[in-house]
Amino acid sequence: MYLKIDHVDKIFQRGSQSTEVLRGITLDVAKGEYVSIIGHSGCGKSTLLNIVAGLTGTTNGGVILEGRQVDEPGPDRAVVFQNHSLLPWLTVYDNVRLAVDKVFSKTKSRAARDAWTLHNLDLVQMVHAKDKRPAEISGGMKQRVGLARALAMEPKVLLLDEPFGALDALTRANLQETVMALHQKLGNTVMMITHDVDEAVLLSDRIVMMTNGPAAKIGEVLEVPLARPRKRLDLVSDPVYIKCRAAVLKFLYERHRYVEAA
């Protein structure tokens, strides 16, 4: 297995108070696969992603990537955060270049690093704004740059934490197309957190549905057997698409309804 999340438990300890967030999470992801994680707010999706990224430690269990245990963050597991997290004092180009310089300092020449930075900005159609600062571009553009920065690291796994969460519907659709096209072209292994059922079905090979916390588990895993490349408009009336969508909705709103103050 390429990426293996193996019996992961996570308990947050704050003083004498402990919160069990994740219990017994086991998930295998194949190389090149696009997996979405969906679940109600606060169930522990970000915690799980941060564990894979190495930003948060596990209480029990572990994560294995290409046969090696993950115990610290690294550029082989690039993260695109919900709030873009670009460095505001650097230009768009320099934000990506920072990552490129760090990851390829020994393997690429200066000129090659410059070309690689521009190439990745081109993948997300952001070359035109390369000299702008994050404050001068729109939210969708920031996410594109964040995506370029992550892709430029040539990660083994691309981790997306609600990458389109803060965007309006049209920008969101646009970025989904970009991500889909890039996944098609580059064959990245992707783990994406989302709140959006349509987004999950449109983009994923598999959808992992998490139960409500505390002590959230994987409730169900749904295969999405839709052929790629996928076209948003064709899918609307596709019976497989409709069935998948219904299955996720059923899970979220019937069997694991979000209970206020649970």
Partner: peptide, 20 residues
């Protein structure tokens, strides 16, 4: 967020000091 970026990029303490 910035700390996380530094962690993912594995900036060393010196780079972290003057870049972040």
């Amino acid at each position: 967020d910035y700390r996380n970026v530094a962690l993912v990029l594995k900036l060393n303490p010196f780079e972290y000091f003057y870049k972040i």
